[in-house]
Design a protein around this nucleic acid. Structure first.
Lengths: 196, 196, 196, 196
DNA sequence: CATGAATGAGCTTTCATTCAT
DNA sequence: GATGAATGAAAGCTCATTCAT
């Protein structure tokens, strides 16, 4: 409020633009580091990759969860948004559910350590966990309810458990060639089907 | 001379008894610490709990994996041994498989951090991973084969993947009241069933 | 803006000054500790002496060799640079060699444990060893060659061996009043003289 | 005492013999370990090699120096005893000195870490140092005096310094193929010669 | 006497987080 | 706002030495 004499609005504008650019640099760097070292990579590494001081990271993303969320927000959002569309176009609700889960798995499986971080009881990641649930749980619930309503699947598993199970199945999937998370998830989803 | 069947030699007998007691103290302490802090708990903590120097732990269990294996060996063995029995008594192979997996899940779910450790790519736990596989994979394979042979289940999932999936589903199960690993595993196993 | 010629960039200038002061504190502390406890003194001790966290040492000097080199760099460089001058001014090349070696000995003899560290096969000190050789071997070679060319000394000892011998003779010289490394080195150099 | 039926007095005899054998086993093991790991090898390793408890080592050789001395005693003694003989047979006292020193060097150079241990200020090795001096200093003095008396060498270097110098030159000689301690010692001894 | 288990100080190294500049 | 230096708690691991059996 007391920044009289700072110049015109455009000055503040460029400031903001700078900050925004910086933020994006950070996100890109973090994404890159997460791929190679996982989401628990040392803050220093990320700062180095972004060519930025560590303080800058803490300023933009006070907790690690904030950073992780920011990095994956777009993809999580895209996943969330895909739900209704799939439901509308899918042959059946259960099929839509399956395809939506595939989307989620595709996302998780390619994020080194993300699935594990989501399940960890580490306090650092509580917010991360919460974000994913906030965003995806309603969608999953909708799909699940639809599938249950159509009689295709049993209705005794809630979306939280399903998402948790799927997330769990994705843990470590990228580092073990003998394991195929997609396959396992497929079986899990198959298991949901109403026993004739 | 009258300790035939006692093991290796008699000279060190008295010493042996002490060491054995100590070893047990250690295992108990480790088990206790594992429950609260997970299998990655600092060696120091375990030593403290056992009221023992850290060196003592390293003497008995040179690597962390050795300790973890020792702590859970009996239960893993029991699980392994239960396989054939279940197969013999179960109504069907698939039912036997389900019950055997329940056993495994019951075990894992109560061991804070074990399931996660099994899936970690941390070199410390390689041996642990190997031990579980050595012990349980053959049993699982046998059950799976039998179920496949009986035509109850699809035969396109190998035991490794199944165990990995089940193990994954157990991660973090003890610290989240909203999640029921047993339930998810049940669905997974159901998903194995031959589609009509 | 007026720090032209100060080094790399101006933005970090103020920071740099601080760090530089700290670096110097570290070097002083290390030098002091080295005097009393030798160059293998615990990192903690050096940090304590400098009244600094241990991390600070690791930041400035990632390996122990880096620290040791930094502590002695000036003196090693001075020694290296003295070579050509001595050669130019000395009555004979052999005399110059002798005086140059005296310089080296004076340096080594006052550095508790340095001579020993130079000869140790401890991997930590490889770099240190290399640094000394890089810096001093060429100089020694030059002097040795000149003396050989002048016919004063035998030419069948290379500079590496000479330096190693001299270095060895300096080991422990500071802690044994009955031993006079300078004297021994003098004899060694005398032994180089061409047998009439 | 309650080993009635063990036999006659010969039992005690065998006891002693046992102890002696044990002692020898220890020395052999230590010698072997010293070769590969140096004289500072962990006590445990030596005990293991000897297939003996660590307590046994401490009983026989309370300090490390005691053990080292015992291991090398014969060779040190042999070296000491060779002195007078060489003096009697050598062409000149200086030649005898040179040959005696060669003997010493041959001994030292083949004992990984011994030369360094002799020069260390580590309190553990004080006794070792003392033993070597006790045994060899008189011999060296005798040879040196004779050579000085014959006018072959300068008389201003005492035996202690000479031995120390020679010892120093042997440090690390076995692990550096570019360094030839014998050569350097030869030069040192040459340097002793009375300048014309 | 011998054994070897136990002790625990001592060292190294890594990083999350803070904060002076 | 940005920087990155500094901090210092944590953990791991090793061995000399003691001492109960």
């Amino acid at each position: 409020m007391n920044d009289i004499g700072q110049g015109t609005g455009s000055a503040a504008g460029s400031k903001r633009k700078d900050a925004r650019r910086n933020r994006q640099t950070l996100l890109d760097a973090a994404a890159a580091v997460f791929v190679t070292s996982g989401v628990e990579a040392p803050v220093r590494d990320i700062a180095a990759k972004a060519d930025v001081g560590m303080g800058t990271i803490y300023r933009h993303f006070p907790t690690r969860a904030d950073l992780v969320i920011a990095v994956y927000r777009h993809q999580v959002d895209a996943c969330a948004e895909a739900g209704p569309a799939l439901l509308a176009t899918g042959p059946t609700p259960h099929a839509a559910l399956g395809r939506w889960i595939d989307l989620f798995v595709d996302f998780l499986v390619t994020k080194h350590g993300l699935a594990a971080a989501l399940q960890t009881d580490n306090a650092d990641f509580e917010t991360l966990h919460a974000y994913f649930l906030d965003r995806l749980l309603p969608v999953c619930t909708q799909l699940l309810d639809a599938a249950a309503a159509s009689g295709e699947i049993r209705s005794d598993l809630n979306a939280y458990q399903l998402m948790r199970g799927v997330g769990n199945l994705c843990i470590g999937a990228d580092s073990d060639p003998r394991y195929d998370a997609r396959r396992l998830v497929e079986l899990l989803v198959a298991g949901l089907r109403q026993p004739r």
